[in-house]
């Protein structure tokens, strides 16, 4: 797994080398309306290369909307998003994926009728080249490419410890494993920015620990920048370098886990105000 440094400089950074000077993703004045409902209001956020940022907040705070804006599923009503010094506000999701933004979903969005291998190979889609004709002939380069990328996918299978299920249809797997496969599909893209929407939701303690270990390992091995939505405060405090707190679409705090925990606004958002 050491030979992963192929796409972008972010991949070569090690944990502990968070680049505090050049943000990888910059969000300026992001506002999102759905008709009369405002999901996000004036978010300013800089995500540094190599850090793990946790986004927390009560239900309906706008956390998933924020990720959807970054990955391009929602177009913000106002504001700008820049990734790797390039404005991406108007780009389609597939263009952002090609730039190196990968993500997982809160409700698993795998390709249920396909096997684990096929799902992971789809993660390699942006790196594979063969077009329609060479795919159909499956000769020479097309075949070599498939084998080459299969090798990369097998590395990810080893990393996530899912060797035994590689040829099983994803729809038949247990929930925790599906979550892991979805992480694998995002990793197969070799993203430089990885958005994880509640990767540990609905898991038992062992599964949570496994997932937390994978998140830390990804960060350590590849230095991938990660944005993580999570409700389990224990996990958030242990895993993240920085925490951003949203409440009713507004950003109410941003800082180290310790600092955010003491913030009166955060305590009020979570516990309500004392009468």
């Amino acid at each position: 797994m050491a030979s992963a440094g192929t796409t972008g400089s972010g991949f070569l950074l090690k944990k502990g080398c968070i680049d505090q000077l050049t943000p990888q993703l910059t969000i300026e004045g992001l506002t999102l309306h759905f008709g009369g409902v405002t999901a996000l209001t004036g978010i300013y956020l800089e995500i540094m290369r190599g850090e793990i940022l946790a986004v927390i907040g009560p239900n309906g705070a706008g956390k998933t909307s924020l990720l959807n804006c970054i990955s391009g599923l929602y177009r913000p009503s106002e504001g700008k998003i820049a990734f790797e010094d390039r404005e991406i506000t108007q780009l389609a999701p597939y263009q952002r994926a090609r730039m190196g933004i990968g993500r997982t979903f809160q409700n698993i969005e795998l390709f249920k009728h396909m096997t684990v291998l096929e799902n992971l190979m789809l993660g390699r889609h942006v790196h594979l080249k063969p077009g329609l004709i060479s795919s159909g002939l499956y000769w020479g380069r097309a075949q070599r490419e498939e084998v080459k990328h299969r090798r990369r996918v097998e590395e990810i299978i080893d990393f996530l410890e899912i060797q035994s299920i590689r040829k099983k249809p994803v729809g038949m797997l247990a929930y925790g494993l599906q979550k892991r496969v979805e992480l694998g599909r995002a990793l197969a893209m070799e993203p430089t920015l990885l958005l994880l929407d509640e990767p540990m939701a609905g898991m038992n303690i062992e599964e949570k620990e496994d997932m937390a270990r994978f998140v830390l390992d990804v960060s350590e091995e590849w230095g991938t920048t990660m944005v993580l939505i999570e409700h389990d405060m224990g996990v958030v405090m242990d895993v993240s370098d920085r925490v951003c707190v949203l409440d009713f679409g507004r950003q109410i705090a941003d800082g180290t886990p310790e600092k955010v925990q003491q913030d009166p606004l955060v305590i009020r958002a979570y516990l309500g105000q004392q009468q």
Binding site: S71, G72, L73, A92, P93, Y94, R96, A97, R98, G102, R103, F105, E109, L110, F111, K112, H113, M114, E118, M121, L122, G123, H125, V126, L128, K129, P130, G131, L132, S135, G136, L137, Y138, A142, E145, E146, R185, A186, M189
Partner: peptide, 28 residues
């Protein structure tokens, strides 16, 4: 051959979950 390689897999991805297909870089 199409359905065991890149283009066919993209077709099946669109069938199964077009949303996920777009965020892994498939131009729907």
């Amino acid at each position: 051959n199409i359905f065991r390689s890149r283009v066919g897999r993209a077709f099946m991805a669109i069938r199964d979950r077009d949303l996920a297909a777009s965020v892994i870089g498939i131009n729907l």
